[in-house]
């Protein structure tokens, strides 16, 4: 009997010791472990939504959360969707960056994956991740051929399933984001922006949408027309809101709405669009001053303006009153 008591006592003492040492280690490392988790989240968000200063996290479920990325002035720069989905070997956890409207992917970061080293694992390489910048989901994965559209990426050779899994997770991320964004705005986010802008610069003016055209009226008199148009930029399509006079001959006002590259250099492009005010249509590329380091994006804005102009001209000719 004595021996059994001794056994129990010794074991209990050892377990008590072990337990207390572990509890101490656990408590003293917990903070650092939590910080590491936060840091990896922050780094990932910063790399997909550039210029993020702070973020707010909204947990959707245990596999998904939406991080609202804010700049130094508190404006929303975009969203990071942290989401887990199935890969080839196991779960893949991604951070997917979206522009404020949720239409365009700004970038992706792979947080966790257990794909085959050397094959599926190559989804963590920049060459693959960079492809997603500027794409507009739903994304299609091409095998062995170069992407042509803004919604296509090329699969990694020998790792088609891993590549497709990533694209599927990105598409799903957009779905989740849109579901959660639409609750807040209810309207096409570009339209909301245009309305907000018009109220600011031209208070008394009423805006009425007919088809793709916006009629700008003040006290029953038509002041001009507006249209939302897009042009193809460096890594993204750029959307603008173009206002023209009743004769559709020159730019009354121009608002650059959206585009990942615009988000990075917003002030520069705002200045640029101000300079285009009053210019005759269609715009001649040679006549405008270049935005340093962003020639392609600037060309995108110009082509968006000219596209918008063409549509306006045609629509008005067709006699829409």
């Amino acid at each position: 009997m004595r021996k059994e008591y001794r056994m129990i006592i010794v074991l209990t003492v050892i377990i008590a010791f072990a337990g207390s040492i572990l509890a101490y280690t656990y408590v003293s490392t917990q903070e650092a472990i939590q910080r590491n988790l936060d840091n990896s989240k922050k780094t990932a968000l910063l790399s997909v939504v550039k210029g993020t200063e702070s973020y707010e996290e909204q947990v959707i479920d245990d596999k998904t959360s939406i991080l609202t990325a804010k700049g130094s002035d508190g404006s929303v720069l975009g969203y990071g969707v942290m989401i887990t989905g199935g890969g080839f070997q196991g779960a893949i956890k991604l951070m997917v960056g979206f522009n404020p409207s949720g239409d365009t992917v700004l970038g992706i970061e792979v947080l966790e994956n257990v794909e085959t080293p050397g094959l599926g694992n190559r989804i963590v390489e920049d060459g693959f991740k960079k492809q997603f910048e500027g794409t507009t989901p739903p994304i299609e994965v091409l095998k062995g051929q170069k992407p042509e559209k803004k919604s296509q990426v090329q699969a990694i050779t020998g790792a088609t399933i891993s590549s497709k899994s990533v694209a599927a997770i990105v598409n799903n991320a957009q779905k989740v984001l849109k579901e959660n964004l639409s609750g807040e705005t209810g309207k096409d986010s570009l339209e909301v922006k245009v309305e907000g802008y018009l109220q600011k610069v031209m208070p008394g003016v009423r805006m009425e949408k007919r088809g793709s055209l916006y009629f700008l009226e003040e006290e029953g008199e038509i002041l001009g027309y507006g249209i939302i148009a897009r042009g193809l930029g460096y890594s993204d399509s750029v959307a603008v809101f173009l206002c023209v006079d009743t004769k559709v001959s020159r730019i009354e006002d121009l608002l650059v709405l959206d585009g990942s590259e615009v988000a990075v250099n917003r002030t520069k492009f705002e200045e640029f669009s101000q300079k285009l005010k009053g210019k005759a249509l269609p715009l001649n590329i040679k006549g405008v001053e270049v935005v340093t380091g962003a020639t392609v994006t600037q060309d995108a804005i110009i082509s968006a303006v000219n596209t918008g102009f063409e549509i306006l001209k045609k629509e008005i000719k067709n006699g829409i009153k």
């Binding site: 989905g85 080839f88 085959t116």
Partner: peptide, 8 residues
Amino acid sequence: FSGIITLQ
């Protein structure tokens, strides 16, 4: 066999 099914 790998890839015949996908683990979530």
